[in-house]
Amino acid sequence: MGLRHNASSGQGQEASSARLRDKRFNGYLRIRLPHELDAEVEATVVVYMRGSATVRQKTSDSVDVKAAAVLSAHGQRVASTAIRAMSVEPLRLGLVAVSLSQGRLDQPHDNLFVLAALNDGATLMGTTLQTVLTGVARLLPPAGLTAIQEFDQRHDRDKSLTATGLARTGSGQTFLSTWRPPLAPGRPQAPPSPKRDPRAAARLAFREYTQRRQLRRRPEAPEAYGAVIIRAEAAPGRSRFADRSIPCTP
């Protein structure tokens, strides 16, 4: 994955952002990796990065809840892509995608899962999220940059894959950061439900995890994500645009 797309005018960038609202992106988080849709999202991110300050501002302002859901899902997908390619560049693109989606998601705390996956990817490659962020920080919208910085300041255990209901599976070209909710001692493994939003399941698992550890919101916890510790599971009707179980042809 490289910065292979040419920058374009503000008008072209707006059209690129609008493309993310296409129904082809329904269920984007769940489709196989890699997929041709990944290149379309990457194109939007790269044009944003290469654009002028005016283009970047227009792009950020044009992101709505549907485009934000796709950008957030892309951030989680490229966390796995980075490990498969053993390249830090997808992590940088992922941070840009997350920053553009920040503050516009249907579920405000969904980026917590994405940042945990990106943080884990950085760790596996012998670097840190802060180091990866340094390379793109000047390009990010202020709200997105602040949210990422606050996440990075959390205790290691609170930004781990385990804490967010994710786990590593596979290796090499099959590596994936995917959903594996932590179980309470003695609790049998429940069969997965195809109708459930995977991030809704992870939210519930994260809530159970923090309750078992008797975690409470701490004064130094970032306000952007602290509430996720005690929030209830999202209702099915609030599932994200990019995660809905609408059939998607590979």
Results as ranks from 00 to 15, higher is better:
158 D>M: 14
193 S>A: 07
132 V>R: 04
29 L>I: 13
229 I>D: 08
126 G>N: 05
209 Y>P: 00
83 I>D: 03
125 M>E: 03
87 S>V: 07
58 K>T: 11
190 A>E: 14
49 M>N: 08
114 V>W: 02
106 D>N: 05
77 R>S: 00
216 R>W: 14
56 R>D: 03
113 F>V: 03
215 L>Q: 12
211 Q>E: 13
215 L>E: 13
107 Q>N: 09
61 D>C: 00
31 I>Q: 13
22 D>M: 07
133 L>I: 04
4 R>G: 12
221 A>W: 15
190 A>S: 12
218 R>W: 05
221 A>I: 13
40 E>V: 01
103 G>I: 09
80 S>R: 05
143 A>Q: 10
39 A>I: 07
180 R>Y: 10
126 G>S: 02
95 L>H: 06
217 R>V: 15
163 A>M: 10
84 R>F: 11
185 P>Y: 01
116 A>H: 05
89 E>A: 10
162 T>D: 05
132 V>M: 04
44 T>K: 10
247 P>Q: 11
53 A>Y: 08
73 A>D: 03
81 T>A: 12
110 D>W: 14
70 V>S: 11
5 H>F: 15
53 A>K: 14
126 G>Q: 10
123 T>R: 15
199 R>A: 08
243 D>Y: 05
68 A>F: 03
181 P>F: 04
196 R>Q: 09
78 V>T: 08
112 L>D: 08
134 T>E: 14
49 M>Y: 11
216 R>A: 15
241 F>P: 06
8 S>V: 14
105 L>K: 00
222 P>G: 06
171 S>Y: 06
61 D>V: 07
219 P>M: 03
105 L>E: 02
54 T>N: 11
115 L>N: 02
33 L>Q: 08
61 D>Q: 07
128 T>G: 02
31 I>K: 06
71 L>W: 03
98 V>R: 13
136 V>C: 01
172 G>D: 04
83 I>C: 06
207 R>P: 00
36 E>Y: 07
196 R>C: 00
